[in-house]
Simulated scan of single mutants.
Amino acid sequence: MGFFSPEDGGHALDLTAAEFRDSPVFGVTVRYPAGHVVPLHTHAYGHLIYADRGLLRVEAESGQWLVPPTAAVWLRPNVRHRLVVSVALQAHGLFVRKDVCARLPVVDCVVSVGGLLRELIIALTQSDSQAMSSKRIRLLGELVLEELQAQPVLPLHLPWPADNAGSPIQHVCQTLLDNPSDTSTAVEWANRLAMGDKTFHRRFMQSTGMTFGKWRQQLRLTSSLTLLMQGIPITQVALASGYDSHSAYTTAFSKQFGQPPSLFSAKV
């Protein structure tokens, strides 16, 4: 992921040690404890970030993603990002040469990770690269690229305001991120910011590309994944996420992700 695990000192990882110049893709694996944060950094490569257990939060200028073990984040080359680890996990980072990134998504996004892609990622990041032939590494990399092109984009993206840091809309979003159960209405936020409610809605849409209500719901649902995967009962997760009941939360969650929260709760 660009950094060793904290046990190794947390220093920046020298990717040239893992790079194979005749292969389009190479990778590394890093273990992170709960509460660890990898600071903002960039790579000259396209970057696929996958955690085969736990839940990983990826923050970039283009948005934020909460990533369960059924998905991975794709970032274009040179995108500044940081990693926030809420529960202990093992992260896999694939790096794609810039000259072949045109074959992959042109925006930062979350893609589904099925059985084949998962095994390919693990093969490229966990195997002893010195024992693998250059041909095998190259072929595995080519197959990863083919699989990535075929994966659907998942609705785990939370757009972040494009305004300057400290703007009123960024303040609203950061407050809700810190406390997803906050029930303040758009009118209440507008009053606090000394602006009309129509102005607030317009500025929020301009800054995030989403309405206030939809953005807050997406925040609540994506944030709730962290609680689910910590084994917290669904009813408690629903209340902590701003929902009045288990059923209301389950309905909204299933509509957003196409699966009930119970499936994610099982993946602790």
Rank of each mutant, 00 (worst) to 15 (best):
G54K: 03
V144F: 05
H171Y: 15
P69W: 04
A165D: 15
Q64T: 11
E19F: 14
L263T: 13
R216P: 05
Y45E: 08
G209S: 01
S112L: 09
P33I: 02
S86L: 05
D99W: 03
R118E: 02
T16A: 10
L145F: 01
V84W: 09
Q218R: 07
L120W: 00
Y50W: 15
M195Q: 07
V73R: 08
R53E: 06
T222Y: 09
V144W: 02
L148I: 02
D108K: 05
H43S: 08
S245W: 02
S241Y: 05
F4G: 08
K214S: 13
L221Y: 01
I122T: 04
I169H: 06
V67I: 11
R216W: 09
G27Q: 15
K135D: 15
M1V: 10
P159V: 00
V73C: 03
F253S: 01
V96E: 12
L48P: 01
G114S: 04
S223H: 15
D99F: 08
T251P: 07
P77V: 02
S167P: 00
Q90Y: 14
M205W: 12
S86V: 09
Q259F: 12
V172M: 12
G10Q: 05
R57C: 09
W160K: 03
L143R: 14
A194N: 10
G27W: 13
G258T: 08
V113C: 04
L143Y: 08
A123F: 03
I122R: 02
T199V: 02
S265N: 07
L176Q: 06
T183L: 14
D197C: 09
L145P: 07
I49Q: 14
G9V: 08
H92Y: 12
L143Q: 10
A131F: 04
Y249H: 01
A150H: 12
A240I: 05
V172Y: 01
N191I: 05
G63V: 07
P155E: 03
Q126T: 14
S134N: 15
G209L: 00
S184M: 14
V38K: 02
A17Q: 15
L124H: 06
Q170P: 01
S167V: 00
S86C: 14
P39R: 00
V187T: 09
Q230F: 03
I234M: 05
H36D: 14
A266I: 06
L221V: 01
E19G: 06
Y249F: 04
D52L: 05
F253T: 07
S133G: 15
S265W: 11
L56I: 11
V67T: 12
L83K: 04
K98G: 11
I122K: 08
T235A: 12
V111S: 03
T226Q: 11
A102G: 15
M195T: 03
K255Q: 12
D128E: 09
P152K: 00
T208D: 01
I49H: 13
L239I: 07
Q206M: 13
L40K: 12
H43M: 07
Q130S: 11
P233D: 02
P24Q: 00
L116M: 04
P260E: 02
Q174G: 11
P69H: 08
A131Q: 08
S207G: 00
A165M: 09
